[in-house]
Simulated assay, not measured.
Amino acid sequence: MPDAENGRFALSPIAGGVIRLDTRTGAVSTCTDTGTGWACYAMPDERAALDTEIGRLQADNEKLKAELAARDPTVTGKSDERLPKSDALKKAEPKVADGERRIEIPLPSDPDMDRAMSFLEQAWRRLVEMANRMQKDVSGRI
């Protein structure tokens, strides 16, 4: 077993070995008996990876803030007028013919109708094929 070096390491048993915690650095290792002696392998430290990524993102954020501050603060084409409120989920109103109170509903085009008919034909053929297979399976079992 590894030497505890005057309490530097805390050991906890696991299946097939021990987990070793270095109380000075916080590094965690798994130690196993390989038959020729004990071997300890460092476990990946997710916290260190997260801290590294957070540091990188903070540096990028500061760099982008500096670039933004260095830009000209005046934006051309900007107006102080408020935009009208509109409901993005509101459906478009059907067209009303000029001078009449009639609603025009656009009909599907010929290619749209051809696609729909093709889909229905394929679905019908598959349904008939499935019924034929089921009939053969049932008659084969009796």
Rank of each mutant, 00 (worst) to 15 (best):
R102D: 07
D112A: 08
M117S: 03
P106G: 00
R141T: 15
P106M: 01
A69F: 12
G140Q: 13
A59F: 14
A39T: 14
S12C: 04
L83N: 06
W124G: 00
S79E: 02
D72I: 05
E129A: 11
R47P: 00
A88T: 14
D60M: 13
M1R: 04
S79G: 05
L107T: 07
D87G: 08
C40E: 08
T23Y: 00
G35N: 10
R133A: 14
K136C: 01
K95L: 12
P84A: 01
I54F: 04
A49S: 10
W124I: 07
V138S: 00
A97I: 14
D80L: 10
T30Q: 09
L57N: 08
G55F: 06
K78G: 00
S79N: 02
T74V: 14
L50F: 12
L127G: 09
L107M: 03
G7N: 09
M43F: 09
E62M: 09
F9A: 05
R102P: 01
R125C: 02
G16Q: 09
T25P: 00
D80A: 12
A39V: 15
D87Q: 07
P44K: 05
E93H: 05
L50E: 06
S29I: 08
E100T: 15
S139C: 01
E100N: 03
K85S: 06
E129I: 06
T30R: 14
Q122Y: 03
D114Y: 04
T30G: 04
K65M: 14
R141I: 15
K85W: 09
G17H: 02
M130F: 08
T23A: 01
A10F: 14
G26I: 09
E93P: 01
K91P: 04
Q122G: 06
R56M: 05
S118V: 02
R47E: 04
G26T: 13
L21N: 07
T34M: 04
